[in-house]
Design a protein around this nucleic acid. Structure first.
Lengths: 153, 153
DNA sequence: AGTGAAAGAATCACTTA
DNA sequence: TAAGTGATTCTTTCACT
């Protein structure tokens, strides 16, 4: 279980994981060793999945975010396998969820422009048979995007 | 502009930013100093937005991902301000996009369970007047979720 | 782009409450 | 069981080549 100190550490690290042990330790009124032991425990127990660098979409020339809503009639395990194989490994697909509701799947796709999206789209509908409805919804503005989860009390 | 070495460094760091300079440098056939200078440049020029720890939803008791599709008739700047103020600062809202198409906004919300989502939902529809259609779509499975952007050639 | 030195941070064995 | 000290080792950073 997590105490208040653990939660504070997790919050700080999901904002910025370059903070040094010293800084983290001071913030929770510890010295570096007990703080380090906590971090290691949080990592070992799986609270921390990893530490990553976040890159800038625009700088990389990725100007277009598309949300793809998909309906299908195929519900066999084999079809699902193929679908996931063909799509989840495409680097432009950042997120991919199976949904409950009107649509069966939601995909977040990051591409350079409409041209690139067109290529992706063709690849998708050609590669995966049995897609009933593929609705592409384009993002006009990114109001918020964070990787920081709400850390409960 | 980015050369092949820069791109490789960016790719490695968006997988795991705890890699030491030595490891990174070896991977791109450099010694640590020139490698470090590149990283600093990539950071200064804004290619790297930050380095963060990724936490585990389940471990934090966040078992429910909801995508909220919103239609509105309000399009004034003032209304938009209020809407964004009231929603973007809610920690359960991880992502929030303005869309082109049938729906006006898409929100990704991470909560513990249906109960918590109910609270969030009530807070949303009470706090923000003029929401025409708020469709909550629940994720059944997370097939893919990555923060790693495709790094172009 | 590289060398080598200096500064800084993480890690650990051991001690204390 | 949790925190602290101090030594060791590993990393980052920088002046200089």
């Amino acid at each position: 279980m997590l105490d208040k100190t653990d939660r504070k550490l997790l919050c700080m690290l999901q904002e910025d994981c370059t903070k040094s042990l010293q800084v983290l330790a001071e913030a929770v009124n510890l010295t570096s060793t007990p703080c380090w032991k906590r971090l290691r425990r949080l990592e070992d127990e799986g609270y921390i999945r990893g530490r990553v660098a976040l890159l800038d979409n625009q700088k990389l020339g990725l100007g277009l975010t598309v949300f793809v809503l998909i309906k299908t009639q195929q519900h066999s395990a084999a079809w699902y396998q193929t679908f996931v194989q063909l799509t989840a490994h495409i680097p432009e697909v950042l997120a991919f969820y199976r949904l409950a509701g009107e649509y069966d799947y939601l995909m977040q796709v990051e591409v350079a422009d409409m041209n690139s999206y067109n290529s992706f789209y063709k690849q998708l509908v050609k590669g995966v048979p049995g897609l009933l409805d593929v609705t592409s919804t384009f993002a006009m503005a990114k109001i918020k995007y964070t990787t920081a989860l709400p850390v409960p009390e």
